[in-house]
Design a protein around this nucleic acid. Structure first.
Lengths: 346, 346
DNA sequence: AAAATTATTGCAAGCGCTTACATTCACTGT
DNA sequence: ACAGTGAATGTAAGCGCTTGCAATAATTTT
């Protein structure tokens, strides 16, 4: 009984709105994207049509036509714990102010997967990318270069690197923490690190440990080293192994808070008092650092500032095509309860 | 010096590949999407061209043409803590098996924001959606219905609801935990809940508490209730207020582990022994439940099964257009260290 | 060997939107 | 009254891909 050849409603398109408002699709498009150039009168009429039809632009079509998505991507190594959560949150908040959407992907600390994710985000039209750490294949950098996709490398600062970055000096931070540890009289150390290969943060932190030891005439070879994957359980197991190998260990330093939380848990279950019998240190200062007891002495990392800064740098790069200077942010020791003087001292 | 009118390389398109391989764009497309239908010989030739040109399909164009994205969306209330992390991980892993990408958005427990996120994901072409909890405006359900977008509601199971869902009975779980608490002799209770408005999980859990009390002839009005937002700090503050108002409280039950972790922290800083002086219970069994000390007695929730199940249901719905039955999964009390007999008993 | 199938490929019409360019309109100044 | 403006709108050409259909090639059947 329909008079015209109207279809079953379906999803409204720009066309439909244009027809309903009695204007061309171009005008509708302008109403939505550059309202100032359309006359008040038509704008009102169009907006009304938009509302009554419940029109919403098709993102893919928009991206295809405009070659711009107002979407930035972020690839982080993990979302399983809070390490990058706060930073991403800040990144996202900052983007939001400029009406940019964030897309996140997680690489599970796997380089091939990261590469895949980067390509996927680019294929999805990400206008710019946030990457964690420098360490990745040259191919992927070339790929981004070629596509003209701005990116910034975050969570690290290393003068030797040429990529635009925002972060802190992982090595220096661990070095200063190690000095503090040594100052407290510790000489029998254990160190639990996350997988270092493909992870420049872990490498740098290890380097900081090593350098601080050298400064004091000690050798990295004398510390009980455990390299393990990223989980509380792994931290606990590693701690156990260290104490077995080197029962007189007075401090176990950890490459991150997750491992440290595991170590702490194990220490307690072994009946050791922290820090009276053994000290433990973390790195990152994520939320669990505060809720374990005693609370973790760790390196406080400028999560939110990195996220926010990365966002504003990317926005600028994407908008103006410029290349901002890398930024180094401070990190500092957060003194809490798990690091005390070496028991040998007493 | 260029002979032909070749452009500056730019991003390779299907066209380019087609030309390089000496076939039509249709054939290239088929090579990529339905390899079995093109001959071995041409397939090899095309794939070679793809490789040498470094071609990658433009997602937007693909979505626009195919009206399908192989992308499912998930909107969770928060990504700041681990509550949904494990579930999402499992969801994602399951999708991956079918070559489907997951897009996540977080609503920060704000209904308007959630609605916005849902529309954004749909505009981005999500083929199906994972939602948390039933509680949202009817408009949004109509919107999804109209667009023909399959969705499943997870983390809840409620026979009264008509949406396809996968989850556990939040009310029953809290009810059983409360019974256990009462069985241990507790009579002076405190309860810390997250904001209940717009959060059916929080409401159901509260309902479970209330019902269990009624069973024993007690009244919900006698428990010291604190409603607060979602953070460790808030949990700690709420615990403090409860103990001030009702100093003889013997157990503080919490609507989730995050609040419980805060409560526990505060209890300790108040010099209270848990569970000797006061018991504390959580809900969710996320990772922090195990690392606090004593470890939290809580409700273990089938995170991974929900995620995995939701994925397979959505895949089926999207593929076959069917409407699977809702699934109820079990949740159980995870006995650890923070719940003990009421001190009154002694 | 011709006819009938079946396996491969190409053609070309969109998908829904943006935007350069052309056109129309409403005023101005002269 | 008319050329000269600038503002508002319309026209239409893509953006890069998929896919129904038609055309062709290869294989089988009779």
């Amino acid at each position: 009984m329909r008079k015209q050849d109207e279809q079953i409603p379906g999803v409204p398109t720009l066309q439909d709105v244009a027809k309903a408002a009695g204007v061309s699709t171009a005008t509708v498009s302008r109403c939505l994207n550059a309202p100032s150039v359309v006359s008040e009168k038509t704008r009102v009429r169009v907006m009304e049509a938009v509302k009554t039809l419940g029109y919403a632009p098709n993102f893919s079509a928009q991206a295809l036509a405009a070659k711009r998505t107002n979407t930035f991507g972020a690839i982080v190594p993990t979302m399983a714990n809070a390490i990058f959560a706060r930073g991403l949150q800040a990144f996202q908040e900052e983007l939001q102010k400029s009406n940019i959407t964030m897309l996140v992907a997680s690489s599970s600390y796997r380089p091939e997967l990261e590469e895949e994710q980067i390509r996927a985000l680019v294929a999805r039209g990400a206008d710019a990318l946030l990457l964690i750490g420098h360490d990745r294949s040259d191919d992927i950098y070339k790929f981004l270069e070629r596509r003209g996709i701005p990116y910034v490398v975050a969570w690290v600062h290393d003068d030797g690197q040429s990529h635009v970055s925002i972060g802190f000096d992982n090595k220096l931070a661990m070095q200063s923490l190690t000095r503090a540890v040594l100052d407290l009289g510790h000489r029998r150390l254990g160190y639990i690190t996350a997988q270092r290969i493909g992870n420049d943060r872990a490498q740098a932190r290890y380097g900081g440990l090593s350098d601080a030891l050298s400064e004091s005439g000690l050798s990295i070879d004398d510390v009980a080293l455990e390299e393990t994957d990223y989980s509380i359980k792994s931290g606990a197991d590693a701690f156990d192994r260290i104490l077995k190998r080197q029962p007189d260990t007075t401090v176990v330093m950890c490459g991150n808070d997750v491992l440290a939380a595991g170590a702490l848990q194990k220490a307690r279950s072994l009946g050791l008092q922290v820090p009276k019998d053994v000290s433990i240190t973390g790195f990152d200062d994520i939320d669990i650092a505060e809720i374990v007891s005693p609370a973790l002495t760790t390196i406080h990392v400028p999560h939110r500032n990195m996220g926010r800064g990365a966002a504003s740098m990317l926005i600028e790069m994407s908008r103006d095509g410029t290349r901002p200077k890398s930024r180094e942010l401070p990190a500092h020791i957060e003194w809490r309860g798990t690091l005390g003087p070496s028991p040998d001292q007493m």
